[in-house]
């Protein structure tokens, strides 16, 4: 897998179709270690399907999906891929509503995953400290013992990002983190993601242009399952194809 050298995530000529509809069509994309990338595109461009392929939920019809230069992700399922270090935040915030905020983070912490391990697990001091750190990062210290169901929409989004952090993955796939947030929350979320990048490779899918601008990173525009343009936000905004298919509408 020489071709994937120097990449953290490498997709080459990936295609998948559902009942004849090509959701992803010859998609190629490469993320360097520590890079943060924003992915934009109109509805149905294949953004979520691309994340499904990377995380093992959907198997591509053909194409290479290589993680960390050597791991062929198409051969693994969601659980394996999550354990290898790819974390995912869903479009709709998905947290464990009947658990407390702290328990949500505890269950996400890297480490114990086996049935018998968790049956006997007692919380360690290191785990408790890590949970406190994350609670501080996502500004939910006050809500520690509240049920996740009682959080506001924006707080659930943050909790889910916190759960990703707890997993300490190499790659974070973040689907619409600012959806349903106020302007202030949106900007705070952009700050949070910028702090995370560097240690982690991050791919953010987002509709909100202000948010993408605040991230200030390289942008990939998807349309009809393949890459339409790539570059800075100003560069892709000026691209006539992009304007035609997405921004102009």
């Amino acid at each position: 897998m020489e071709f994937a050298r120097g990449s953290m995530l490498y997709l080459d000529d990936v295609s998948v179709s559902f009942d004849g509809f090509k959701a992803i069509n010859g998609l190629s994309l490469m993320l360097a270690p520590g890079e943060m990338r924003a992915v934009i595109g109109p509805n149905g461009a294949g953004k979520t399907t691309m994340m499904d392929i990377i995380t093992g939920k959907t198997r591509p019809d053909h194409g290479d999906v290589i993680f960390d230069q050597s791991i062929d992700l198409t051969r693994h399922d969601e659980t394996d891929i999550a354990r290898m270090g790819i974390g995912r935040k869903f479009q709709k915030p998905t947290v464990f509503e009947t658990h407390t905020v702290a328990d949500n983070l505890l269950l996400s912490l890297a480490g114990k995953r086996g049935v018998f391990e968790t049956l006997l697990a007692q919380i360690t001091g290191a785990e408790a400290r890590r949970i406190e750190e994350i609670l501080e990062t996502i500004r939910l210290e006050e809500r520690r013992d509240d049920l996740a169901a009682d959080l506001s929409h924006g707080q659930k989004q943050w909790l889910e990002i916190g759960m990703l952090l707890a997993q300490d993955p190499k790659v974070l796939l973040v689907d619409e983190p600012a959806a349903g947030m106020t302007d202030a929350e949106t900007m705070a979320t952009a700050d949070l993601l910028k702090r995370i990048a560097g240690e982690h490779t991050v791919m953010v899918v987002e509709h909100d242009m202000e948010f993408v601008r605040a991230l200030g990173v390289k942008v990939t525009v998807l349309n009809e399952g393949s890459v339409l343009a790539e570059g800075s936000l100003d560069h892709v905004s000026a691209d006539p194809h992009v304007i035609e298919s997405y921004l102009g509408r």
Binding site: K57, E78, T79, G87, E97, V115
Partner: peptide
């Protein structure tokens, strides 16, 4: 409550 979330956290459901 959220089987997919548990899977994506690395639990073998």
């Amino acid at each position: 409550d959220a089987e997919a979330r548990a899977r994506f956290l690395g639990y073998r459901v």
